[in-house]
Design a protein around this nucleic acid. Structure first.
Length: 463
RNA sequence: UCCCUAGUAGCUCAGUUGGCAGAGCAGGUGGCUGUUAACCACCGUGUCGCUGGUUCGAGUCCGGCCUGGGGAGCCA
């Protein structure tokens, strides 16, 4: 008999059928009236299933009465209508084998709520908890939705390199990749001689796949990347990881307007997917993590994103009576409090900010006709701020080259990026989504370390 | 990196003007019950983060360090 997943047992309309099920014990309650209730879960869905173990089972006293949270069991029995309230079906066990005990004196997970800080220290056991099981399933569902959105819209999935030879974009500190002996590196004129290193040059972990994605967009039209990204910034916040996952679509023959529309459709699509397909987990988040999370997500789906130019936003912020701790000034980056005000208080909806001053944006963003701003966009969500950043890319060779010189980039490093503008250049645009921050937003989890299986942060790379 | 804050039992936390180290939960034993965060009774549990100092005496006061949390910056 093939083993059944609990998700299937809970959703089937069949009754009084023989089944096999495997799982881990969440809790056991004994009735001295001659049987035990054992709730087991197997990760297939949020809920567990109740097993009724009668004392007539041969190993009732020896094994079953010793079952505690975390024990692994195999159950053979009949799926029946539940006699009790609280669940529709249960399994009347004919046989229960213990696959692995979990000593209750030592097993760290208890049948009560633990702090997330504590659970982080036992990252090998925390996926067994309700919260992390739910986070993991939502994360998986969102990954799937991301792929299906792009695949349905004629995007090709591109694998961009993890190891890179260029300190591209200057997007913060990079992790170095080397096989050199760090105790005694080879030297030339007092400097480390990277010609002896594995790649015969200094190399790093990628901070973005965008530039490589542009190469493929200019060959395949619409492409996207979805992979890990690394930043060696010493950021100690609930929104930063040293290793995080990013989604970066890139579209040829596309301007900023279409870029922003795509981002809006994309966000609505994936949020809708998770609300429909992970209803059980989302109800849990709505009950225990953020009591308005489902309402917030439904709001995102049903509202029109409001497009504002940076210049308009500055005017709005300046005329607001709100007392900001940082002054608003055209030409400066907006502070987190400013973004929050715009999305949460002023618009009460997602906001697409466009046309930022070119001085505060990277070299690759397309210069607008006013020669002061670039075709950039940031999507701000109420409560959390920026979730997506994107732009139309500068496709004009001379202007791009001037930008690179102005921002003091090494042109030799980017010869290929410039060549893309020399041969068959076209308008193109794209954006980046921090996947882990998206999970944070969708689940309501306060700390990004609790939405990724094994968080890498300053001073922490355990497990 | 900066500002604020915390570290006491397996977990969550209390601990008074500096004077014998506490509770709830979890765990164990027994009772009760188609139970479901079950309930009732009893039982055990400590390098008070580390280190130096003040003091007759430090969980408590002071310095240094380590680690966590909140916020900021940077960003995704």
């Amino acid at each position: 008999m093939k083993r059944k997943k609990i998700s299937g047992l809970l959703s089937t309309s069949q009754r009084d059928i023989d089944i096999n099920v495997y799982g881990w014990v969440r809790t056991r309650r004994d009735s001295k009236g001659g049987f035990s209730f054992i709730e087991i879960y197997d990760g297939s869905c949020f809920k567990g299933i109740q097993i009724i173990a009668d004392s007539s089972l041969p190993n009732y006293e020896q094994d079953i009465q010793k079952l505690s949270a975390g024990c692994a069991v195999f159950v053979q029995g009949m799926l029946v209508e539940s006699l009790g309230s609280g669940q529709s079906v249960e399994v009347q066990a004919k046989k229960i084998d213990v696959l692995g005990f979990a000593d209750p004196e030592k097993y760290p997970l208890q049948k009560k709520r633990h702090s997330f800080e504590f659970l982080r220290q036992i990252a090998h056991l925390r996926p067994r908890t309700n919260t992390f099981g739910a986070v993991s399933r939502v994360r998986s569902a969102l990954s799937y939705a991301i792929h299906s959105f792009f695949q349905e819209n004629n995007f090709h999935y591109i694998h961009t390199p993890i190891i890179t030879g260029s300190d591209c974009e200057g997007a913060g500190e990079m992790f170095r990749v080397t096989t050199l002996n760090l105790e005694q590196p080879p030297k030339k004129n007092g400097q480390v001689d990277y010609s002896h290193d594995f790649f015969a040059k200094a190399s790093y972990l990628t901070v973005s796949g965008q530039l490589e994605a542009e190469i493929y967009a200019l060959a395949l039209g619409n492409v996207y990347t979805f992979g890990p990204t690394f930043r060696a910034e010493n950021s100690n916040t609930s929104r930063h990881l040293a290793e995080f996952w990013m989604v970066e679509p890139e579209m040829a023959f596309c301007d900023l307007k279409e870029d922003a529309e795509t981002a809006e459709n994309f966000l609505k699509y994936i949020i809708k997917h998770v609300l429909i397909n992970r209803k059980d987990d989302m109800e849990f988040f709505n009950k225990f993590i953020d009591k308005s999370i489902i309402e917030k997500l439904e709001n995102i789906i049903s509202s029109e994103f409001i497009v504002l130019s940076y210049t308009e936003a500055v005017k709005i912020l300046k005329s607001s009576k709100f007392n900001f701790s940082y002054p608003v000034q055209w030409g400066h980056n907006l502070q987190a409090e400013h973004e929050r005000y715009l999305a949460q208080t002023y618009c009460r909806a997602p906001v697409v900010l466009i046309d930022f001053p070119k001085e505060i944006k990277p070299f690759y963003m397309r210069c607008n006709d006013d020669n002061k701003t670039v075709a950039a966009m940031d999507i701000l969500f109420p409560a959390i701020g920026e979730i997506i950043g994107g732009s139309q890319r500068e496709e004009r060779y001379d202007i791009l080259k001037n930008n690179m010189i102005e921002k003091k980039l090494n042109l030799d490093e980017y010869w290929w990026y410039l060549e893309l503008r020399e041969y068959g250049t076209v308008p193109h645009a794209g954006f980046g989504l921090g996947f882990d921050r998206l999970i944070q937003f969708v689940t309501g989890m306060g700390n990004i370390r609790d939405v990724i299986a094994f968080a890498r942060t300053p001073k922490n790379a355990d497990f």
